[in-house]
Nucleic acid binder design. Structure first.
Lengths: 156, 156
DNA sequence: GCGCTCCTGCGACCATGTCGCAGGAGCGCA
DNA sequence: TGCGCTCCTGCGACATGGTCGCAGGAGCGC
């Protein structure tokens, strides 16, 4: 319980709580719990994953509170969410995962790529449409190499 | 009822129905209705738009039938759907709209761009991750020029 | 320690989509 | 033309992911 990693974990938690406070929000148990869960689940938890993780430690925390907490954290700029094609969004700490998410439509595996790969597209889209794309904020559906080999390309 | 555009409309409907048949499916009223609705709503109808449009002409056609019909049409390669960030997918006839969809997260306006703008990204992503992205199949969230000017850039 | 105000738990609600069932209709075949 | 197999449909229940309104409780500034 007093290992360096736990210390780092506690530090990160404190830092995030402080930033949440600085943004004008109160510090409460559910918010602590959601931040802890986000730090523990450092992959790409869906809202549902977060609900499950929080519930395992704090069964009294309600689902809707977690959604509201995620809203508050988003508003404070501490958390952002990414829509993976079909259905649920995944959440992660802002800054810690600023990269592009590429999801295999077939097996749901997620790859990451540097946001730089979209620089060219970003420039062209801005020139042609005036829209400024938001590359960290969405996932690109794709087919991973394994699924590409094992399945017929016609399946979409 | 006999104008050239109506003739073209009927021709397209017949063509699509024939292709559906060739793919081994039966021709039924609901399928005709969904195809007509897709031709009429040539923007980007959500499933709900389609349900509403079909219901206005054929009130007896059930919601779930429309979803199943869209499945059948997808399977036959006549229709594809695009996930716009939050929530619902939009459907359109395959081939007729092979372009990239860029959606303003703020005002929901949709811009189109040639798929070519992603060629560079596509190549880089394939090199680095082995994933083959599927550019026509998803929408990119963005901020349109108007919303970019009128709102603070911090809002995400 | 007080009290304002925000936050929480609860449960109902909504939207989008899926499923299983029983009956009806399309279409291949004779 | 008519028969019959099999697919398709209408229906309603269900699943999932998320939101909302309410009344009570807790954080935090003073």
């Amino acid at each position: 319980m007093t290992e360096p990693s736990d210390q780092a974990f506690a530090d990160q938690t404190q830092d995030l709580l402080q930033r949440l406070r600085d943004a004008g929000h109160r510090l409460t148990t559910p918010r602590r719990a959601v931040i802890e869960a986000l730090l523990i689940l450092d992959t790409h938890p869906t809202a549902d994953d977060l609900v499950a993780n929080v519930a395992s430690h704090y069964p009294e925390i309600h689902r809707s509170t977690i959604y509201r907490t995620l809203d508050a954290l988003s508003e404070a700029g501490l958390v952002s969410h990414v829509h993976l094609g079909h259905g649920s969004a995944v959440y992660h700490l802002a800054g810690s995962h600023d990269h592009l998410h590429i999801v295999c439509s077939s097996c749901d595996r997620v790859a990451h790529a540097d946001l730089g790969v979209l620089d060219d597209a970003k420039r062209k889209i801005q020139q042609r449409t005036g829209f400024e794309i938001n590359p960290g904020h969405f996932a690109i559906p794709a087919i991973c190499a394994d699924c590409l080999e094992s399945s017929s390309p016609g399946a979409c």
